[in-house]
Amino acid sequence: MRLSGLEPTLDILCDGELPKILAGRYCLDRLLGAGGMGVVYRARDLLHEQFGDPDPYIALKMLGEAFDESPDASQLLYSEFALTRRLLHPNVLRPYTFEVDAVHRRTFITMELLRGSTLDKLLCERPLGLPWAELKTIAVPLLDAIAYAHERGVLHGDIKPSNVMLGEDGVRLFDFGLGLIEKGPLKSLPSLNRQRLNAWTPGYAAPELLEGGPLSAPADLYSLACLLYELACGKHPYQRLPSNQARDTGLERRLKAPRNLPRRCWVALREALAFDPARRRISATRLRDVWAGGFSWW
């Protein structure tokens, strides 16, 4: 979800059906961002404020108007909360609560308020990419977060620059709205048809997702590899080609290694960029180990 920096006044936020205060406790302050499925606001927790908390601000996420009318909208939002709550990792955004405002018939998630800039903004400021030393400080924590999630059976589903924050507390991955769980107790959550939502981000979604295939760990890995390549040299590996061109393996062969990447990192990254998911044999854990310098790929 792109954090746009838009700051409408509270009066604008309260126009239409959007209430000023949700669940009698959370006062909407300003819009932080809007993505394909949800909107995120900065809000004041009035209960914490009443007890003297000097920083009562939280992030509050609800589904956008188009998805809010869906019959399984609340279940979709709860699924995101349940998946994220399972991940206790320093580089994954922390959710606080899943809430229901019965009066206004809205569900929402409260989360820690991130302070910093998303990677899409960093890419705009650094069009030639990042030097290896700087890139590594972003890539390794992000790879570790994905490896951690995959080890617990959680898939993200929408890895892209605007869903990664670089802030005061380092790298944070967020927005698991398209994620799902492959194993563990949460496997019993009702299955949601994410293909029906048509919410994949074409520039980063794996080809098989755009062709109607299921989300998988290799699909997550492809999205992550596109992001890492872009951070390394400032441009997308395939220039955001539409899915009907994505199976051209000649494009893979013409990929050039970013000049600032160690050879071991490029060999591993190139495998993760394969169009065919069967050829993405490297895992997020192994890719992390290669980029961290503790594993040789050849």
Results as ranks from 00 to 15, higher is better:
217 A>P: 09
273 L>Q: 03
178 L>P: 02
281 R>F: 03
222 Y>M: 05
193 N>P: 04
215 L>E: 03
119 L>C: 08
229 Y>H: 07
200 W>E: 09
172 R>L: 11
285 T>S: 15
241 L>R: 15
131 P>R: 15
121 K>S: 07
60 L>T: 06
31 L>Y: 05
3 L>N: 08
286 R>E: 15
101 D>V: 08
250 G>A: 14
168 E>N: 10
207 P>N: 00
103 V>K: 14
95 P>R: 04
290 V>Y: 07
37 M>W: 04
98 F>A: 03
166 L>S: 09
98 F>L: 05
167 G>Y: 09
204 Y>S: 02
122 L>D: 01
162 S>Q: 01
176 F>R: 08
45 D>E: 04
78 Y>F: 15
18 L>K: 03
188 S>D: 13
279 R>N: 09
142 L>I: 09
56 P>L: 01
166 L>V: 09
18 L>E: 02
125 E>G: 05
244 N>M: 10
126 R>E: 12
214 P>R: 04
23 A>V: 05
76 L>G: 06
262 P>S: 07
297 W>A: 10
164 V>I: 10
144 D>R: 07
43 A>P: 04
70 S>M: 12
20 K>C: 15
83 L>T: 02
88 L>G: 13
196 R>K: 12
26 Y>C: 01
268 A>S: 08
255 L>F: 02
132 W>N: 04
260 N>I: 14
143 L>C: 05
194 R>C: 01
135 L>F: 10
267 V>A: 12
213 G>A: 02
104 H>G: 04
157 G>I: 07
44 R>C: 07
162 S>I: 00
61 K>G: 00
240 R>Y: 06
253 R>I: 00
244 N>H: 14
86 R>G: 06
170 G>I: 04
5 G>W: 07
162 S>M: 02
128 L>D: 15
151 E>N: 11
70 S>Y: 13
144 D>F: 04
280 R>N: 05
58 I>F: 06
54 P>D: 05
109 I>P: 00
